[in-house]
Computed example of a mutant assay.
Amino acid sequence: MRNSRPQLLDILFDDATAAGQSPLRVVQQRAAALLKLNRAVKGLLPTQMQAWCRVGNYRQGVLVLEIANASWMMRLRYEQPALLSALRAQILPSLSSIDIRINPSLMAKTENLSQKNGNSAQEYEKTGISKGPLPPVRQISMQSAEELRLLASRSPEKLRKALERLAGMAGEGAKTTSRNN
C-alpha cells in the first residue's frame, strides 16, 4: 500500500535520503520512462493512429494504453498482437499483456490541438499541407443515396423526409432535397 501521508517539502527535495534517491526523483524517473515508452509505442503504431493513442501506465507486466474512442480502440485491437510481440522483442521482455482503455479527454485534447494549429479541412484544401492527422471526412456515395431514396419511397412520411435529407448529402450529382419537404 502506498504511503499517502503528507511529507515535508525538504524531504521531497533532499537528494541525500537513506535510499540515495528522493521521492521526487523517483517520480521524475518514472515519468521519463513512461515518456520513452510512449515514443516507442507510437513508433510502432500506424501513422493515422498515433495522435489518438498514448501510454497510460506500465505496471506488473501490463501496459495500459489510452485511446480516444471506441472506433480507434477496435483498430488498435487488430494491431495488438503485432504491437505486443514487437514491444517484447525491442524494449519490454517482461510485458505480459496490453490493456486498452478509452479516454475521451484524449479525443478532446487532440481536436483542440488540431484547431489551434489551424489544421482545419479548409486550410488543408487551400494549401494541400496538413500539420497533423485530419479527421476523416464522411461522404455518402451515389449508390448509397439511391438506396436511401428507394427505402424512403416505402417508408412512413416522417422517416421518408429524414432519409431523403440524408440522401441529399451525397455528391454534387445527387438529387438534392429541401429540409422543408
Rank of each mutant, 00 (worst) to 15 (best):
S97P: 11
S120Y: 04
K42V: 02
P93H: 15
N119R: 14
L151D: 06
P133T: 02
K158N: 11
K42E: 02
A40V: 10
L84C: 14
T17R: 15
I67W: 04
R179G: 08
Q48C: 07
S105K: 11
A33Q: 11
L24M: 07
N181P: 06
W72P: 05
L44K: 04
Y58E: 08
M73G: 14
L84I: 10
L12Q: 06
T110Q: 04
R149E: 13
Q139M: 09
A68L: 04
I11D: 01
G118H: 10
G171F: 06
L95A: 06
A82P: 11
Q50S: 06
A51E: 03
L76Y: 00
R59A: 06
D15I: 09
L35Q: 13
R154S: 09
A16C: 04
N69Y: 01
P104C: 06
A121M: 15
D15Y: 11
R160V: 04
M49Y: 04
P46C: 00
R165W: 06
A108E: 15
R25S: 02
K161D: 08
E157F: 09
L84N: 14
P6A: 14
G20Y: 01
S141W: 02
S22W: 03
S22K: 00
Q139A: 15
Y78W: 14
I102N: 03
S178G: 09
I98Y: 07
K109Y: 07
G56Q: 01
L134N: 11
A19N: 07
K42R: 00
S105D: 12
N38E: 02
T176V: 10
I100E: 01
R54T: 00
R25H: 02
S141P: 05
G61K: 11
I98N: 05
M1G: 13
A82L: 05
T110S: 02
G61F: 10
N57Q: 03
N103L: 07
L76E: 03
I11Y: 03
N117Y: 04
R77H: 01
A33Y: 08
A145V: 05
E123Y: 12
R25N: 02
A170M: 09
V27F: 12
G118A: 05
Q90V: 00
L113T: 11
P104W: 00
S114Y: 07
S105C: 11
W72F: 07
A167R: 00
I98K: 05
R39T: 07
Q115A: 14
N180T: 12
Q50C: 09
A19T: 09
L34T: 09
P133C: 01
A89P: 08
S130W: 09
P81V: 03
I11T: 03
G20C: 00
N69C: 06
Q50V: 08
M73K: 13
L9K: 04
P133Y: 01
N181F: 10
A170T: 11
V27H: 12
C53E: 05
R54V: 00
Q48F: 10
E147P: 09
L134H: 09
R30M: 07
W72C: 02
S96V: 12
N57W: 03
V41I: 03
I140G: 04
A16G: 07
S130H: 03
R5P: 10
S94G: 15
A170Q: 15
A31T: 13
N57R: 05
R59T: 02
P136F: 10
L63E: 01
R25L: 07
L159D: 01
L63W: 03
S155A: 14
